[in-house]
C-alpha cells in the first residue's frame, strides 16, 4: 500500500478505513514471514495455526495503539516496522513461558524469505497436496472445474459462476458441498482420523469411511 502524507496522517489519527487497509495489506505477508521463520527453526511454536494467529493479533493490536501509530514515520517499510513489533511480542511470550528459544535475527527476514519454508513444512504440504489431488480424482468433471476455479485459480464466486454457467448461489452451495465432502475424505484417509473422539459426530455424519 502507498504511504502518502494523507494516509500517514489518517493512520496516525486512527481512521478505521486506513487501519483496516493496513491490516489487510500486511496480515498475509507477516503471516508468511512468521511461518517461514517457524519452519526454519525460529519460534517453532508458530507452526501451530492458533499460535500464529495469536501472534498476528497481538502484533497488530500493539501496532495500532495510538503511541505506536505515532511512532511510525512512513519512510521505512511498514512491514519492517511490524516485524520489529512481532519480534518483541514473540520474545516476551518466550520469556513468559520461560522458553529459551533460538533468537535468530528477525530483521534479516525479507519478503522473499517468506517463500523459503523448511523441509518439514514442505513435506507436510506435500502430504496435504497429495490428499487434495486424490480427492480431486474422485470429482465429476464439473466439480473438478469448480474446484480448480475456486481453489486452484482463486477466482471469485461471481466469476466462477459465469465460467460455469451457474448462479453465484449455486456456486456457493456446490462449493459448500465440495468442502463438506473434502472433510469426510480427509477423515477417511486418516488425516483427521486420529482426532476423532466420541463427540466427533459432525464428521461421522458425513461418513466417508
Amino acid at each position: 500500500m502507498e504511504w502518502d502524507d494523507d494516509t500517514l496522517r489518517r493512520f496516525r489519527e486512527g481512521t478505521p478505513e486506513v487501519l483496516a487497509e493496513v491490516y489487510r495489506a500486511h496480515a498475509e505477508p507477516l503471516a508468511r514471514l512468521l511461518k517461514a521463520a517457524a519452519w526454519r527453526g525460529t519460534f517453532t511454536r508458530l507452526r501451530n495455526a492458533m499460535e500464529l494467529e495469536n501472534t498476528l493479533l497481538e502484533t497488530f493490536a500493539r501496532a495500532f495503539e495510538p503511541r505506536t501509530r505515532t511512532a511510525y514515520n512512513g519512510s521505512r517499510p511498514y512491514a519492517h516496522f511490524l516485524m520489529g513489533i512481532a519480534r518483541n511480542v514473540l520474545l516476551e511470550q518466550s520469556r513468559e513461558r520461560e522458553v529459551v528459544g533460538r533468537d535468530e535475527p528477525f530483521e534479516g527476514l525479507t519478503e522473499s524469505s517468506g517463500e523459503d519454508g523448511g523441509l518439514a513444512e514442505l513435506l507436510e504440504d506435500r502430504e496435504v497436496e497429495a490428499l487434495l489431488a486424490a480427492f480431486k480424482d474422485g470429482l465429476t468433471r464439473e466439480e473438478h472445474r469448480l474446484f480448480e476455479l475456486r481453489f486452484g485459480e482463486g477466482v471469485a464466486q461471481e466469476e466462477a459462476a459465469t465460467a460455469l454457467g451457474l448462479t453465484r448461489i449455486q456456486v456457493r452451495r456446490r462449493e459448500f458441498g465440495l468442502k463438506s465432502r473434502l472433510l469426510g475424505f480427509l477423515q477417511s484417509k486418516g488425516y483427521l482420523e486420529d482426532l476423532e473422539t466420541q463427540g466427533w459426530s459432525f464428521f461421522k455424519r458425513r461418513g466417508a469411511r
Binding site: A49, M50, E124, V128, L132, L186, Y191, L192, L195
Partner: peptide
C-alpha cells in the same frame, strides 16, 4: 491440532 490441520488444508 484439528484446527491446525484444517488450517493447513
Amino acid at each position: 491440532e484439528t484446527y491446525d490441520r484444517l488450517s493447513r488444508v
